[in-house]
Design a protein around this nucleic acid. Structure first.
Lengths: 165, 165
DNA sequence: GTCAAATTGTTTGATACTCAAACAATCATC
DNA sequence: GATGATTGTTTGAGTATCAAACAATTTGAC
């Protein structure tokens, strides 16, 4: 081995419990009982599927969230968007930069306040969302494939109880 | 001349459709119907609460996950850990570096394979987990505060259905 | 046994995301 | 008009992630 980060190495590793045969499933241990970890795993699955579906469009969940929020709240400021997304307003800048560079979003002037930008969808952004909906619905269907409609509704309710502050 | 985040509590307008902050509520729009976004919001809440609780210990969810996996699978390799965590093995390096630097984890030698490191908890790591459990339980209780035991169990089931590949 | 292929940990490079702190421009308030 | 607050932005630091390369080592085919 080339370089070692200089730590104590106790070569006391007993090979007695070396897994026989190959690859037994890795135990989750205490993680199994943590609600947070359960949410995290579901989130990973969702994210992964989303990424695969939106691959061609090169859209991330965060970007889609921004687009939908701008659509539903035309003219909102970057600060307001940041608050709604739960990120700092300085983090909104590169996010909108990218959406604007792609022609999906505009930073329109706001007559009443020349500091703020009034965010709005550009025509290409509106078209994108329309074109995107079938993919999004396919993604949604895949995510909820193992759930009955009633279970899906129940999951919504329970998750919103967790998310509620 | 330092500026504080300063909440927007400048409310003194007519309270008709206006929220305490002085602004109309931001609409979620189509986001409202997306299961993925629902999971994401719950995840954000969990993450936020975790961070606040583990602030003093300076522990992230990912680091705690690694510690628990190492605890439950003593001697596993970095590659195996990466697979279990869903991250690349090159990303495991700085993760373990940090845990090792803090004295919580050891990269022990493995006689049967001198390429791999056998990951194991150092005594300080074991002590950490013990010391940490009350905090983790408090966090867990807060997260599930709005859920009955039956609802919590149901949420586990539904989330695992979503996470199942 | 020998040798090619696979594996492991690591480094490097690139991208992305986040916040904190500072700054100019602008607004709000007095 | 003066003062403080807000907005968007830049910069800097930290973290996280992957891909690609690499040396050391193991494994498997022959």
């Amino acid at each position: 081995m080339r370089r070692e980060p200089a730590g104590q190495q106790t070569a006391e590793t007993s090979d007695s419990d070396v897994r026989p045969g190959g690859r037994p499933a890795i135990l989750l241990g205490r993680l199994e009982t943590l609600l947070g970890y359960s949410v995290r795993r579901a989130q990973m699955r969702v994210f992964q599927d989303f990424e695969a579906e939106m691959n061609e469009l090169g859209l991330t969940p965060g970007q889609l969230g921004a687009l939908f929020l701008i659509e539903a709240n035309r003219g909102l400021s970057q600060s307001e968007l940041g608050t709604a997304l739960g990120i700092d307003r300085s983090s909104v800048v590169p996010l909108i930069d990218r959406l604007q560079r792609r022609g999906w979003v505009r930073r329109a002037a706001r007559a009443s306040d020349r500091r703020a930008h009034a965010l709005e969808l550009a025509p290409a952004g509106i078209a994108l969302l329309e074109r995107l909906m079938p993919r999004l619905e396919a993604h949604e269907a895949r995510i909820a494939a193992a759930l009955s409609p009633a279970e899906r509704k129940r999951l919504f309710e329970l998750l919103s109880k967790v998310a509620a502050k």
